[in-house]
Amino acid sequence: MLELLKRFYASFGLPRLIILGFFIILNIMAIVLEVNFPELVSASMVRIAMNGVLVLAILPSIACGTGPNFGVSLGILCGLVGGLIAMELRLDGYTNFFMAIVFSMPFAVAVGLGYGWLMNKVKGSEMMFALFIGWSAVSLMKIFWLVAPFDNPEMAWPIGSGVRVTISLVNRELAQLLNQTWSFSVAGITFPTGLILFFLFCCFLVWLFMRSKTGIAMLAAGDNPRFAEAAGINVDRQRIYGTIISTMLGAVGILVYAQSFGFFQLYEGPHFMPMIAVAAILIGGASIKKASIANVIIGVILFQGILVVAMPVFNIFTQDMASMAEISRVIIQNGIILYALTQVVSGRD
């Protein structure tokens, strides 16, 4: 038993235990302080499922060996472009949502291809490269948003050209679309059934993919490129595939996120989203080199769960403590990324 605990500790790592402990303490405090618990659970489920696909987007990049995709903002931008096109065509509801996905895919594939090609040119420093290419792309796209040739008044600035910073999805019957599909309440807890099912369906697709021939080749290329080369696998091509899939999932992810959020956030919006997604998968037990669907699900539950529960709990103490929720998010998010990076160096044998 003790042996088992030790092994669990070794594989789980101290930082994750601290985060898990923090989450449990927060939950206990929430109950003790008589925060509206059913509401917390409902909110948690929404946050978890709406972020889930973005976290899932990090998985293929880790699997193919390019490390956590800090440049998933590229995929997010593609998703936003697809979403804006759907808005411009004045599509409503499901048509809008799914056509937005369809419109964003060609962009995501093309961008992923180029991004993956670049990743192969910078082997060894992919993460740093991804971080900065993501940030650069976000800034570059700000120019595009300013001159974007859309004329749907729901998105355009009242004067001049370009699109607004925040675009409401309410008028297109898109806000909360998935959340409200088949949603039901039990004991005060509202289940966003459609949203959860969509997230799990995406997980299932990725799971199927990882069990295909290409998926196995990708795993091998990510685990040990030299082995893969010797096994006749084209490592560079697998890395490009992984990057493309990651970018595509990023595009889907932001559309899921936006419909739950009720807005498209352009300009600064996508800037720090990759960090949140990367932190979540790492909290779930993934490393820079290895990740699984379970890591995605556990990670997003823990991380987003903490964010949801921390806010009202800290709020109860004092008004000033409200910013504590945000501070703890930043500490956890950057701390876990830092921890994962240190593991890369010492994890070799």
Binding site: K213, I216, D223, N224, F227, G232, K289
Partner: peptide, 21 residues
Amino acid sequence: GVGLLLDSSIELNIVVTAIEN
């Protein structure tokens, strides 16, 4: 370095080249 996928299971190591080739 070249011969094994150290962080994968024994069975995957055994079959991976046959799957691929």
